[in-house]
Design a protein around this nucleic acid. Structure first.
Lengths: 239, 239
DNA sequence: GTCTATATACTGATAGAC
DNA sequence: GTCTATCAGTATATAGAC
């Protein structure tokens, strides 16, 4: 009996590992497609072609296209947080906030497709969808209820990163401002900068880095110049 | 000869007017669909069904779906500007800026589909598209070159509205800031507030009006209270 | 001018053979 | 577990009859 149980366990573990590997293969292919052609171009057929599967087989590992996209979004969000987190170690609050803000926008501008994926989860849920997608959505909602982190909560957790730093800074204006609200406001600004930069809106375009600096300067006054290297900023952004 | 010419002119005018009417009918139907079901649900079939046409007939008046969507976007932008323009008459600069900012965000939040249309033109041009859409795009670019206002330039013109007001206000911080850059920054913030509000991102959501007030307070200090009606703000936003 | 009919190329998703 | 074959849609776009 013990032998049978052990064999059974091993078999299950093997299957689980294999299933996990297949999910990874699918996600890898999906990620490549989204990076190359954008989220809108992601389809089950393309993923299947990329890994030499039939479209039908994908449904053994994912409930549907939306679940794959959501998994990619979660990945992207973790990646964004991973880039921001080490910056919280910067001692000077002013510099820390500066670095966080620039890094956030740099990430969004450097990885537009990933950034889109991160915010897609919200839109997908509030949009009108066809009957098939609706069925799919119900399945996803059930998965959420079962313990998967809700995307809104995940994003809010990112805002905490800013709130902690903002709490030890005082605006140049005399206004007393709730630092949680200030964090949301800053986040909105950064999000807006990313969106406008990606949309290339406004013919005479202002560099995203300058927009961030302008906001922080308007809030807290110009930074003490020269004390720190003025060009040491997040990569990918000429400010 | 004169009679023939006149008849010819009349005939042309009649045809042009009729074509214009048909375009309007098509745009009306398209607008209704977008308002009800979102931009993604806009299709030639649905428009044709709505006005009792065959899909083929629509191609007599528009080059394709994208041209219809772009026309709607232009309409929406004009509508947005029309709502902002009267506010430029407010005498007090501080109040004027406040009213403009709230009205901008209110418009975006109250008309999410129209707001999406306004910004869609940019995305559509920078995204990967199929061969048919590419052909279509070339036609549109040609139309632009022929004199149609470019969407980027149009949006930039909206920013001028803010720049004019910002030029007569001084930030609470001592920082000297280019008012054109400040206008772009404010615009980014307002755009971000709209986007985040529409995405309902962040579980514990902060009211959009509060985010705007927080930005303006951080920039220029808290408003002189009580002097003006504190609740007289743009419609649709409980701040 | 408007239609029907059709071409072409997709999509997500499923049933059932192997 | 994977496949083929297919369903039931979607789309843009065009040719040719009336």
């Amino acid at each position: 009996m013990a032998i049978v149980e052990r064999k059974d366990r091993e078999l299950h573990a093997k299957h689980a590992a294999r299933a996990h590997d297949q999910r990874e293969r699918i996600l890898d292919a999906a990620r490549r497609i989204v990076m190359r052609e954008g989220l809108a171009a992601l389809s089950m057929r393309k993923i299947a072609d990329a890994i030499g599967y039939s479209p039908a087989s994908l449904y053994l590992y994912f409930a549907g296209r939306d679940e794959i996209a959501e998994a990619l979004g979660r990945e992207g969000y973790a990646q964004l947080l991973a880039q921001l987190e080490p910056l919280t170690l910067i001692a000077d609050a002013r510099e820390r906030l500066h670095a966080l803000a620039h890094a956030y926008v740099a990430y969004g501008c450097d990885h537009p497709q990933t950034y889109e994926l991160i915010f897609m989860a919200h839109k997908a849920r509030s949009e009108h969808v066809g009957p098939a997608a609706r069925r799919q959505r119900n399945a996803l909602d059930a998965a959420d209820a079962a313990g998967a982190p809700e995307a809104g909560a995940a994003l809010a957790c990112g805002v905490q990163l800013f709130a902690a730093t903002l709490s030890v800074l005082t605006p140049a204006s005399g206004a007393r401002i709730d630092c949680a609200v200030l964090a949301q406001t800053l986040w909105a600004t950064l999000h807006g900068v990313v969106m406008l930069t990606l949309a290339r809106a406004g013919s005479q375009h202002v560099a995203p880095g300058l927009l961030i600096d302008t906001t922080l300067d308007a809030w807290f006054g110009a930074r003490a110049a020269a004390a720190t290297s003025p060009t040491a900023q997040a990569p990918g952004l000429a400010s």
